[in-house]
Design a binder for these strands. Structure first.
Lengths: 271, 271
DNA sequence: CAAAAAATGGAATTTATAGTCCATTATGGT
DNA sequence: ACCATAATGGACTATAAATTCCATTTTTTG
């Protein structure tokens, strides 16, 4: 205990965490990352729980506490328990509070979007058709190459899937329409097109689907409702309905479905 | 009520507390009063501390817990600790199990991602700093031009914000590094840079922030934890921690914050 | 490529805390 | 006022958690 004692405030704690985080071996870095993302849990967890969360041994977590400047876990925990005072109402109380009291402020807006996102996610589970999802995974898994098209509002989803496929060594090409270059001739037999479009639907996407569909190329479509124009073509359609707030959508549900599709295809291919 | 276990929710706890409070001897009533006024402390205190606060012996407090329907203090405390962290039992371990368990079933995978997304959203609401958010909105609202940079995994977020700003007539430029063109000279005095980066952090983004930061251009950063390298620079930092699956994140919380920021800036400018 | 240093995992140990028991004190009824 | 009953305080025990130690593995360095 010759140590003058570790950080005395959460702010100091964060600074120390950052300072230390640059030069840390594997396991201790895991501790740092987990702690950074779950500071609120320190107050109510045991070393064993924190260690498990970080995916390390309790003793490793202890070493981390010491590196942070504390004598051990208990001392670190004390900091968080004391700072905890009376704050932290639960989720629903806080949400309500933000909505009413902070009306017009960015925080209130955040509360609305969070709520819309949550509702969309819950809805997604109810509406997604398990068979269609499996069919989509099967089709994409068999493809020589996956051609992803999604423009404007759908572009974030398309680019995200492109990133995910790349990371999993799934051959995929993102059709981004940069410079109005049309790359539809890159689509060959044995390939599959993954089309993403939401109202208002991009004509470019519809056109592309129409063209490849006529050639007998399988199409998997990620779209909003059943009335989507992509329905006309003989595509495996996955529909997501986002709850929107004002004129904007948070895309939570769509991205959730997108990542699921990506990971499922990735594992199906490697397995 | 069967002795099979005490109240399972905070609400049930409060009801039981009220129900019981009418017929209680002196010391136990002290316990009830103290608990009613300090519910939040239960999660982070020991019996001894609670007893001292209530002005009774630890054994008296134990009896109180039993009268409330719990087997002892630990069981009562568990209720409060769990509702505090949101009820999720160890995500990283759960997702690890998912690897083996949900293989072959895309629907199960979807359910997990939905759940992860929901948890991330709840967590976002709890952890976002209202002041930083307001500062970020203020800074971006004053900008002549907003320069958005976000590569790889962050690119979907960057492109989404770019789309949203465009729709709201907010002057914004997406720095996409297409063709390795470096457009940092487009950034002028009076502009603001909005940098988005998540672990593993893109060097291009860090470099850009470093360069413009030195020139005195304000930077708003959207990043994951406080360990992010963007911390070094004098930026307004908004951090989001997303529950991830291997190398993948559903981005639900991140996009939610992104759209909030966009809409807040959009309305602040037009108002 | 071998030796040294650092990092790690797991078991052993220590400490703190919850939970129990019983003698003593207060309370209410006859 | 006395007995019966309930409530209380404090010491004791069991249990769970924090912390330490050391053998083993991994990484670095000459």
């Amino acid at each position: 205990m010759g140590e003058a004692g570790g950080p005395a405030t959460i702010k100091a704690f964060e600074e120390r965490l950052f300072e230390v985080s640059t030069s840390l071996p594997k396991r201790l870095r895991q501790c740092a990352d987990y702690v950074a993302a779950n500071k609120d849990r320190i107050a109510v967890s045991t070393v064993a729980e924190m260690a498990e969360g970080a995916g390390v041994q309790p003793s490793a977590f202890m070493r981390f506490c010491q590196i942070m400047g504390f004598s051990g876990f208990s001392e670190m925990q004390r900091l968080f328990r004391e700072t905890f005072v009376g704050g932290w109402p639960d989720y629903s109380t806080r949400l309500q509070h933000l909505r009413e009291k902070a009306e017009g402020s960015p925080s209130a807006l955040l509360a609305e979007f969070v709520e819309a996102g949550r509702a969309s996610l819950e809805n997604l589970l109810k509406t997604v058709d398990a068979h269609h999802l499996e069919d989509a995974v099967a089709a994409l898994s068999k493809a020589n190459m996956i051609h992803i098209i999604g423009l404007r509002r759908s572009f974030p989803v398309a680019s995200y899937m492109s990133y995910a496929f790349e990371k999993m060594d799934v051959p995929a090409m993102l059709h981004s329409a940069v410079g109005r270059l049309d790359s539809r001739n890159a689509i060959r037999d044995g390939d599959v097109v993954l089309a993403i479009t939401f109202s208002p639907y991009s004509v470019e996407t519809i056109e592309l689907v129409e063209a490849v569909s006529a050639r007998g190329i399988p199409v998997v479509a990620l779209t909003d409702t059943i009335v989507s124009p992509l329905r006309k073509f003989d595509a495996i359609t996955l529909s997501v309905s986002e709850v929107d707030f004002g004129a904007f959508r948070s895309l939570s549900a769509t991205l959730c479905l997108a990542i699921t599709l990506s990971v499922a295809v990735g594992t199906a291919r490697s397995g």
